[in-house]
Amino acid sequence: AIERGSKVKILRKESYWYGDVGTVASIDKSGIIYPVIVRFNKVNYNGFSGSAGGLNTNNFAEHELEVV
């Protein structure tokens, strides 16, 4: 089962992080479509409006993740 702290591989082909491994930061139990927040070591794009980097978290559905 996917739980907080799990290392997961991203299976969503259109994702910037496809094939990468991230760490589960949290799981939303409220029934939303993409409840699993995954944190990565790298950012997906340069930040804007003065922020240092881009996003390094993204929401995924459990079926888009594979525990490694």
Rank of each mutant, 00 (worst) to 15 (best):
residue 1 A to Y: 08
residue 1 A to Q: 12
residue 2 I to D: 00
residue 2 I to H: 03
residue 2 I to R: 01
residue 2 I to N: 02
residue 3 E to R: 12
residue 4 R to S: 10
residue 4 R to I: 15
residue 4 R to D: 08
residue 5 G to C: 14
residue 5 G to S: 03
residue 5 G to R: 02
residue 5 G to M: 02
residue 5 G to D: 04
residue 6 S to A: 13
residue 7 K to Q: 13
residue 7 K to M: 13
residue 7 K to F: 11
residue 8 V to E: 02
residue 8 V to H: 01
residue 8 V to F: 00
residue 8 V to S: 01
residue 8 V to K: 01
residue 8 V to D: 02
residue 9 K to W: 00
residue 9 K to V: 08
residue 9 K to A: 03
residue 9 K to G: 02
residue 9 K to P: 02
residue 9 K to F: 01
residue 10 I to M: 01
residue 10 I to K: 01
residue 10 I to L: 03
residue 11 L to I: 06
residue 11 L to S: 03
residue 11 L to G: 04
residue 12 R to A: 09
residue 12 R to L: 08
residue 13 K to G: 04
residue 13 K to D: 04
residue 14 E to L: 06
residue 14 E to G: 08
residue 14 E to Q: 06
residue 15 S to T: 02
residue 15 S to Y: 04
residue 15 S to L: 02
residue 16 Y to T: 04
residue 17 W to F: 06
residue 17 W to R: 02
residue 17 W to L: 02
residue 17 W to V: 00
residue 18 Y to C: 09
residue 18 Y to P: 00
residue 19 G to D: 07
residue 19 G to M: 11
residue 19 G to F: 10
residue 19 G to L: 13
residue 20 D to T: 12
residue 20 D to H: 10
residue 21 V to F: 07
residue 21 V to S: 02
residue 21 V to H: 05
residue 21 V to D: 02
residue 21 V to W: 08
residue 22 G to P: 01
residue 22 G to R: 03
residue 22 G to M: 05
residue 23 T to D: 04
residue 23 T to S: 03
residue 24 V to P: 00
residue 24 V to S: 01
residue 24 V to E: 01
residue 24 V to W: 03
residue 24 V to M: 01
residue 25 A to Y: 07
residue 25 A to D: 13
residue 26 S to R: 11
residue 27 I to S: 01
residue 27 I to E: 02
residue 27 I to W: 05
residue 28 D to I: 10
residue 28 D to V: 05
residue 28 D to W: 03
residue 28 D to P: 02
residue 28 D to G: 05
residue 29 K to P: 10
residue 29 K to L: 13
residue 30 S to F: 06
residue 30 S to N: 11
residue 30 S to H: 05
residue 31 G to E: 13
residue 31 G to D: 14
residue 31 G to V: 13
residue 31 G to Y: 09
residue 31 G to I: 10
residue 32 I to N: 11
residue 32 I to G: 11
residue 32 I to E: 12
residue 32 I to T: 13
residue 33 I to E: 10
residue 33 I to W: 07
residue 33 I to F: 11
residue 33 I to K: 13
residue 34 Y to R: 11
residue 34 Y to A: 09
residue 34 Y to T: 06
residue 35 P to E: 12
residue 35 P to Q: 10
residue 36 V to Y: 13
residue 36 V to S: 00
residue 37 I to N: 08
residue 37 I to E: 14
residue 37 I to M: 13
residue 37 I to A: 09
residue 38 V to E: 01
residue 38 V to I: 04
residue 38 V to A: 00
residue 38 V to C: 04
residue 39 R to I: 14
residue 39 R to N: 06
residue 40 F to V: 05
residue 40 F to E: 04
residue 41 N to S: 12
residue 41 N to D: 13
residue 41 N to F: 08
residue 42 K to A: 06
residue 42 K to V: 07
residue 42 K to F: 07
residue 42 K to T: 10
residue 43 V to C: 15
residue 43 V to I: 13
residue 43 V to Y: 14
residue 44 N to C: 15
residue 44 N to H: 14
residue 44 N to M: 12
residue 45 Y to P: 15
residue 45 Y to D: 15
residue 45 Y to K: 15
residue 45 Y to H: 15
residue 45 Y to S: 15
residue 46 N to D: 15
residue 46 N to Y: 06
residue 46 N to L: 11
residue 46 N to H: 13
residue 47 G to C: 15
residue 47 G to W: 06
residue 47 G to A: 04
residue 47 G to H: 07
residue 47 G to N: 09
residue 47 G to K: 04
residue 48 F to L: 14
residue 48 F to Q: 15
residue 49 S to V: 14
residue 50 G to S: 10
residue 51 S to D: 14
residue 51 S to C: 15
residue 51 S to V: 12
residue 51 S to E: 14
residue 51 S to P: 13
residue 52 A to I: 12
residue 52 A to D: 15
residue 52 A to L: 10
residue 52 A to K: 11
residue 52 A to H: 08
residue 52 A to R: 03
residue 52 A to T: 11
residue 53 G to R: 05
residue 53 G to Q: 11
residue 53 G to H: 10
residue 53 G to T: 11
residue 55 L to G: 08
residue 55 L to M: 13
residue 55 L to Q: 13
residue 55 L to P: 06
residue 55 L to A: 11
residue 55 L to K: 09
residue 56 N to H: 08
residue 56 N to W: 09
residue 56 N to C: 15
residue 57 T to F: 11
residue 57 T to Y: 14
residue 58 N to I: 10
residue 58 N to C: 15
residue 59 N to M: 09
residue 59 N to I: 05
residue 59 N to S: 09
residue 59 N to G: 10
residue 59 N to D: 07
residue 60 F to G: 00
residue 60 F to W: 01
residue 60 F to E: 00
residue 61 A to I: 02
residue 61 A to T: 03
residue 61 A to M: 07
residue 62 E to W: 12
residue 62 E to G: 05
residue 62 E to Q: 09
residue 62 E to S: 08
residue 62 E to F: 14
residue 63 H to T: 08
residue 63 H to D: 11
residue 64 E to I: 03
residue 64 E to M: 03
residue 64 E to R: 01
residue 64 E to P: 01
residue 65 L to N: 01
residue 66 E to Y: 05
residue 66 E to L: 10
residue 66 E to N: 03
residue 66 E to V: 09
residue 67 V to G: 01
residue 67 V to M: 09
residue 67 V to I: 11
residue 67 V to K: 06
